[in-house]
């Protein structure tokens, strides 16, 4: 299945986000080998050069590293992975609060609603 891509943002950014998400959420385990650029590009149905660029950017962020002959691997640095997971979570929370503000809820109201929603879920 081709990956779902938005129409208004650069494709390589969306590929980065998707792979980053897969790494953080554990689809790829720390130390795992990533598929080749070509295979990933085929899976996503995107241009191999674009995939290459996304992976190079991920390398710069330290999430993946490449070994000259054997390919690209997910970082072993668990602390880094935890930190990125945390950052991503914070990003989602921030977005959520922004939207609630937009709808006119204060932080307190929002928090109350969350607590209530959680209770409802437990019952």
């Amino acid at each position: 299945m081709p990956w779902d891509l938005d129409n208004d943002r650069p494709i390589y950014l969306q590929l980065m986000e998707r792979i980053q998400h897969d790494i953080i959420s554990g689809v790829y385990q720390p130390g795992d080998k990533l598929p080749s650029v070509r295979d990933l590009a085929l899976e996503a149905a995107v241009n191999p050069n674009t995939m290459q660029k996304a992976l190079s950017e991920l390398e710069r962020s330290g999430l993946v590293y490449s070994q000259r002959t054997s390919g690209r691997f997910i970082t072993d640095d668990k602390a880094l992975l935890r930190r990125m997971k945390r950052e991503l979570a914070e990003e989602h929370i921030q977005q959520f609060f922004d939207q609630m503000h937009h709808l006119g809820f204060s932080d307190e109201d929002t928090l109350d609603m969350i607590t209530e929603a959680l209770k409802g879920e437990k019952q």
Partner: peptide
Amino acid sequence: VDEIRTQYG
């Protein structure tokens, strides 16, 4: 393609 997407949104 990505230049266009970055530049024009």
